[in-house]
Design a protein around this nucleic acid. Structure first.
Lengths: 121, 121
DNA sequence: GTATTATATGAACAATTGTTCATATGTTCT
DNA sequence: AGAACATATGAACAATTGTTCATATAATAC
């Protein structure tokens, strides 16, 4: 029977609602997409990066200015900016020695503020 | 001078655009709020929890069914559900021995899908 | 009461992450 | 060319995180 197959030692308990599980399974996100999405949110999951993003809502900024604003050293900020850039949350442009960072698109601000309204509830 | 104060060894480089920094500082998020927001997004930043949330878009589910769906043991799922509940992303109701979990509000799905449209770009 | 089942939880461990330090790269100015 | 400055990056370390295992709690059935 199907029920016996489902009980195949997946967890210490048995599948209780096989119909629900089968129906939900049809709508499940791909493994790859779940990984990408988790990686995306991980980038938001750090106080320093939250502050950097929040700062960039106001203005593009160079690395030194962000470091001064957040009272952190240049290296730490640079490492974080790299992560933000790899996740395509920010973009950069170079002007001489100075590299300016800014938000990559408006999705970012929307996600940010949706999160903010949740935590403010 | 103000400029000398600003150069006060905050980072290895100097503040380049003091006016920008001062203006941005006015719009900065509180430390506490930044922490809360980062904590909120951290909860989204895990593949297992992403899948659990995605599953709950389709239907409320009990712990066993989620464990079976994701092919993980009951304890791992229970730990993750606790985190989701602490962050108020899911709520639970007990019916006899079985505890059913469901999404706490629609914010969650909005954040989720905004993130998804970013990673799909 | 005991047995069984569903869920929760604490401890331990491996894996990941953020910051610091030292140093490298890239650009401008002299 | 070399000096000065802004930024990037690799290695190391501490701190955090997710899973597993063992066990505890809670509800039902006998």
């Amino acid at each position: 029977m199907d029920n016996e197959a489902a009980n195949f030692e997946i967890c210490s308990c048995n599948v209780i609602h096989e119909d629900v599980v089968n129906r939900v399974r049809k709508n499940m996100i791909d493994d790859d997409e779940a990984t990408d999405l988790a990686e995306f949110f991980k980038v938001f999951g750090d106080e320093t990066r939250i502050k950097i993003l929040n700062a960039l809502f106001s203005s593009e900024m160079c690395v030194c200015d962000i470091a001064a604003l957040l009272d952190m050293n240049q290296s730490a900020i640079s490492h974080q900016l790299r992560k933000l850039k790899q996740a395509r949350l920010v973009k950069s442009r170079r002007d001489g020695k100075v590299v300016y960072y800014s938000l990559n698109d408006e999705h970012i601000e929307q996600v940010f503020h949706q999160g903010l309204s949740h935590v403010r509830e």
